[in-house]
Amino acid sequence: MYFTEEHNLFRESFREFLQKEVVPHIDKWEETGHIERFIWEKFGEMGYFGLTYPEQYGGLGLDFFYTVIFLEELQRVNSGGFAAAMWAHNYLAMTHLNAEGDERIKEKYLSASISGEMIGCLCVTEPFCGSDVAAMRTTAVKKGDKYIINGSKTFITNGVYSDYLVVAAKTAPELGNKGMSMFVIDRDTKGVSATKLNKLGWRASDTGEIAFDNVEIPAENLMGEEGKGFPYIMQHFASERLIMGINAHARAEFALEYAMDYMKEREAFGRSIDKFQALRHIIAQRVSEVEMAKTFNYTVSKRLSENEYVVKEASMSKLLSTKIADETIYDCLQMLGGYGYIEEYPMARLLRDSRLGPIGGGTSQILKEIIAKMVIDKKEYKAAAR
Rank of each mutant, 00 (worst) to 15 (best):
I283H: 04
G245N: 02
I149Y: 04
L336H: 04
A314K: 04
K143N: 11
A85P: 04
F128W: 11
N297H: 03
E327N: 13
E289H: 07
I273H: 06
A314P: 00
A99H: 06
G81Y: 00
W40D: 10
D326T: 15
G159M: 07
F212A: 09
R352P: 04
L18C: 06
D261Q: 07
I114L: 01
E327Q: 12
V23G: 08
P218S: 03
D27A: 15
K264M: 10
E55F: 05
V192T: 07
M292L: 14
M136V: 07
K20V: 11
M244I: 03
E103Y: 03
A268F: 11
E225Y: 02
E225S: 11
A383G: 12
Y341C: 15
Y48P: 02
G201P: 06
K146V: 15
I366W: 15
Y298C: 14
T138P: 03
F17W: 05
K199H: 09
L60R: 12
R386I: 14
E308T: 07
I35C: 10
F128L: 13
D27I: 06
S364C: 14
K178S: 13
T171D: 13
Y91M: 14
P231A: 00
L242A: 01
A172L: 10
G362T: 04
S131Q: 14
F237Y: 11
S111C: 06
G144D: 08
K108V: 09
R303N: 08
S131K: 09
L9R: 12
E30V: 02
F17V: 04
A255S: 12
G208I: 02
E257K: 13
F82H: 01
M182K: 08
R355P: 03
V184D: 02
L350Q: 14
T328F: 01
E36I: 01
I376R: 04
G61L: 08
P173S: 10
V167E: 01
Q235P: 02
G245S: 04
L74G: 05
